[in-house]
């Protein structure tokens, strides 16, 4: 049976997937614009620029996983659990770090990615350093995803019987 609690959990899933997805989309798009500019001048650098473009995409992935985890917990593929309001709120709040963290870190990570593409243009041999700098921002998306994971996964949920 679907209760308010279940719906709250779904809202959490929506936020996790959507917001981190939007963040990644914006991030990858910005980096993609820089990459297109680079490739128009130096087509041989395409793969490296493409790789840098992809790096802000991780947040969307984390958001998808957290969202999927929420769905698993409310047993979406079988009898949907009838969560109490409190359990619903728990799922909702648990998704927030991944959602908001993903959104904001993705946008900032794309700024570093764009600069790294500029680095790739001027000094193609230092490509790895640019990549490492971009991946640094991901650490915080990672922290957010871990916290979301713990809150969504660990506690026992209560259902309305």
């Amino acid at each position: 049976m679907i209760t308010t609690g279940t719906c709250l959990a779904i809202i959490g899933m929506v936020l996790a997937v959507l917001l981190s997805g939007i963040g990644s989309a914006i991030g990858v798009a910005k980096a993609g614009q820089a990459a297109s500019g680079l490739v128009s001048e130096s087509p041989d650098k395409f793969m490296k620029a493409f790789l840098l473009q992809l790096l802000p995409g991780t947040q969307g992935l984390y958001g998808l996983l957290i969202g999927f985890l929420v769905l698993m917990r409310i047993n979406i593929f079988g009898d949907v659990l009838a969560l109490t309001d409190q359990s619903g709120y728990l799922m909702l709040y648990g998704c927030l770090p991944a959602a908001l963290g993903g959104l904001i870190t993705a946008i900032y990570q794309s700024k570093v990615a764009v600069s790294s593409i500029g680095l790739l243009a001027k000094r193609p041999e230092e490509f790895t350093k640019g990549m490492m700098m971009t991946v640094m921002v991901e650490t915080y998306a990672l922290f957010a995803a871990i916290m979301s994971f713990i809150v969504v996964f660990m506690p026992n949920l209560q259902t309305i019987s």
Binding site: L65, E138, L142, I146
Partner: peptide
């Protein structure tokens, strides 16, 4: 971070 990055296999 690197280990969790492998969750993209699943994703």
């Amino acid at each position: 971070g690197d280990i969790i990055s492998y969750s993209r296999l699943f994703g």
